[in-house]
């Protein structure tokens, strides 16, 4: 797992290789730490975690700005509400 700051208000959370529940728990913790308006780019390759992360954002109000999917890898940009 890697979490780093890419730019002002932009962070990257790389949880490739992890299975449930790790990607969704790490995503939740990352979003809880950053400021409203900040963007976290989440990189994961466990499809079922995507369902959970999307539902979690629906509940919290965090917005998924972009979703990229290529060769079993997902890259989602999530803006904290």
């Amino acid at each position: 797992m890697k979490f780093e700051k890419r730019d002002d208000g932009v962070y990257v959370l790389d949880v490739k290789g992890y299975v449930c529940p790790h990607p969704q728990i790490y995503t939740k913790k990352a979003l809880s730490k950053v400021q409203p308006g900040d963007v976290v780019e989440v990189i994961f390759d466990n499809p079922s975690s995507g369902e959970s992360i999307a539902a979690m954002c629906e509940t919290t109000g965090d917005e998924i700005l972009t979703k990229k999917h290529d060769g079993g890898q997902f890259v989602w940009d999530i803006e904290k509400a």
Partner: peptide
């Protein structure tokens, strides 16, 4: 996945 049924409720608040 049955595991995620209650795990995701407790872990990330997702009921799907």
């Amino acid at each position: 996945c049955f595991s995620s049924a209650f795990r995701d409720l407790f872990a990330v608040g997702v009921p799907r």
